[in-house]
Write a protein that binds this DNA or RNA. Structure first.
Length: 558
RNA sequence: GCGCCCGUAGCUCAGCUGGAUAGAGCAUCGGCCUUCUAAGCCGAGGGUCCCAGGUUCGAGUCCUGGCGGGCGUACCA
């Protein structure tokens, strides 16, 4: 019995009553007394059909009761339909989960269409910080959620390897370089002060000696720029790999210039008649498309603003045939959203392209105090330092467990805790505990659990609740994907892990051995192990979506 | 000033297209170990859902106006 079958019956009933294309909820009620599944369909139909919701509910009830597997239906409260399933029908989902295994939870909503998720996109001016970490976790999880929803996903990292910030980095490297060769030299205003700049300078001495000691030419600065960008890009990739995040493509801003894309974009924008010259600069009428004000494309000194390559870059996304694009960015960039979209609309791209997911920033707390434990970066905490401290899985989970648009306080005390208080460990332990059951079953020489165990034997309320929870995984996954909201999966996994732990504990050998999974009664044992196996699959699939390992046994760090 | 985001238990936060008695974790308090690993489980207390109006059968959720916090508001990126 899947909820889809019930949903279909509800839709048919609505059609008979004269309402097509309806929206309603069909989910697991919070209170088990409200059945295995509950729907508000009669309430939503009420205003449309101009009839009291309870009358509508009564009619639908009669229809639902004839559906195979439905034990009984109750009309409750203002007109809710509470569906109680027969034991075997309720547990049927366990069989399906075991058949689908690692595919349980997937859907084909994306129909194999292409989508690009652009995320991290850190400039190579320093090591990745915690905001990048949150973004890496978010972007990767959203990408995976979309893959599970049937999309072909392209993960892309855009980086700015030219322009003012990079020039300041190169100047900072030159200052450190000359310092290390004994000169009195100051970091320029707006330059970079972190220790890593000195490391880059040292590496340059190792590589090129004092070749640039008294060379103030553009070519020398260009060499330092290239050197610094190379090292920092490599470091970022190493950090991302340690975090378990991999990209399909790294797209450098410089390519937009070298292949003429920026120049072409300028021509195309000029061709729209929406550009004009004012105060010696070239402007675009972005205010025609909802931007707060018009924007400068080319500065008085003849150089482009960031706006121009940004528009050009998004044009390449469109031309590369990505009509669906999600940009994951920090909310400190939200001012660019309207102007980039406006620039693209001027060129005839659809309004609302691309989609943006803006996330809030991250702070770390230990003992209730904010900490900034960076040694290398100077003013901020790096992702690498955090991962070294708590591990990639914990960091990922903590970055994902809050809504993107909410500020994230990273509780380092909780992150370092290895008990079930730590939500990551709670979920991992639940998975490992269940795996342990199968290990013991094998040791005792019990055969593999057959696919057709008598699931109706799972009649304890706790078991029914767990079954209903496992049934909901695909719905949560769908909701997390469409809402770009991985935290929905975190909430789901914590709830599921809690139920698994309770169920496991209920079979405690000294308290109620008759409730244990590993009982001598073969039929009962197989029924319970069927539930355990389904739970194991759901926990593992959920963790996999988040990019977190599902261990078969836990090894404690001392 | 203007724009976006946030305001829910002591703390950190969930709460999907408006639905039943507003939930979870942490913290606090009280129980439970000769174990399918207690790295755990069971239970309890704890709420002006920031405030004030409005919309309706029904508002934490939608609308309007305030208050408080964050981030933006460049010929920086």
């Amino acid at each position: 019995m899947s909820s889809e079958q019930i949903a279909e019956a509800l839709r048919e009933a609505a059609t008979e009553l004269g309402a097509d294309d309806i929206r309603f909820r069909l989910d697991r009620p919070k209170d088990a007394r409200h059945g295995d599944l509950a729907s508000n369909v009669a309430l939503t139909l009420s205003s449309r059909l101009r009839r009291p919701p309870r009358d509508i509910a009564e009619e639908i009830k009669t229809r639902l009761e004839s559906v195979a597997g439905v034990d009984r239906v109750e009309v409750a409260g203002p007109g809710f339909l509470n569906v109680f399933l027969e034991g075997a029908a309720a547990g049927e989902v366990l069989r399906r989960i075991r058949v689908l295994g690692g595919r349980y939870g997937r859907n084909d909503a994306g129909a194999e269409r292409r989508v690009m998720v652009e995320f991290v996109s850190a400039n190579p001016t320093g090591p990745l910080h915690l905001g990048h970490g949150r973004q890496a976790a978010l972007g990767d999880a959203i990408a995976t959620l979309l893959e599970w929803s049937g999309w072909q996903v392209h993960r892309e990292f855009y980086f700015n390897d030219a322009g003012g910030q990079i020039a300041r980095l190169a100047q900072s490297v030159r200052a450190r370089y000359r310092q290390q060769l004994g000169h009195d030299e100051a970091i320029p205003d707006g330059g970079y002060h972190g220790d890593y700049v000195s490391e880059i300078a040292r590496a340059l001495i190792d590589e090129a000696g004092n070749r640039y000691e008294n060379d103030s030419s553009e070519a020398a600065l260009e060499a330092m720029r290239g050197h610094a960008v190379r090292l920092l890009r490599r470091e970022q990739e190493v950090d991302l790999a340690a975090f378990g995040v991999h990209f399909d493509e790294y797209y450098p801003e410089s390519r937009l210039y070298s292949d003429g894309c920026v120049a072409r974009t300028v021509r195309d924008l000029d061709g729209t008649g929406l550009t004009y010259r004012k105060d010696g600069a070239d402007w675009l009428r972005t205010s025609e498309f909802g931007d707060q004000k018009d924007r400068v494309m080319v500065k008085r000194d003849g150089s482009p603003t960031y706006f121009l390559p940004d528009v050009a870059y998004h044009v390449t996304k469109w031309e590369r045939d990505f009509t669906e694009v999600i940009n994951v960015q920090g909310s400190d960039h939200h001012s660019t959203v309207d102007r980039v979209r406006a620039g693209l609309q001027a060129l005839g791209l659809p309004a609302g392209y691309p989609e943006y997911l803006l996330h809030q920033m991250v702070t770390v707390e230990k003992g209730g105090e904010e900490v900034k434990f960076s040694k290398r970066a100077g003013s901020y905490t790096t992702l690498a330092e955090l991962v070294a401290e708590v591990g990639a899985d914990v960091a990922r989970y903590f970055f994902l467990m809050r809504r993107p648009e909410a500020h994230l306080t990273f509780d380092l005390d909780l992150a370092l805790d290895q008990s079930d208080k730590n939500p990551v460990y709670k979920v991992k332990y639940a998975h490992a505990r269940v795996c342990r059951l199968f290990e013991l079953a094998r040791k005792r020489g019990w055969a593999e659990v057959p696919p057709d165990a008598d699931i109706a034997l799972l009649d304890a309320p706790m078991e029914r609740e767990l079954i209903n929870q496992l049934r909901e995984f695909p719905a949560f996954l769908r909701r997390a994907a469409t809402g770009r909201a991985p935290h929905v999966i975190c909430d789901y996994l914590e709830k599921t892990a809690g139920l698994v732990n309770s169920w496991y504990q209920a079979g405690h050998p000294t308290r109620s051995p008759e409730q244990a999974a590993l009982v001598d009664d073969e039929a009962l044992r197989n029924a319970r192990l069927t539930l355990a196996d389904a739970a194991r699959i759901v926990l593992r699939n959920g963790l996999q979506v988040l990019g977190i390992e599902a261990p078969e046994r836990m090894v404690r760090d001392e």
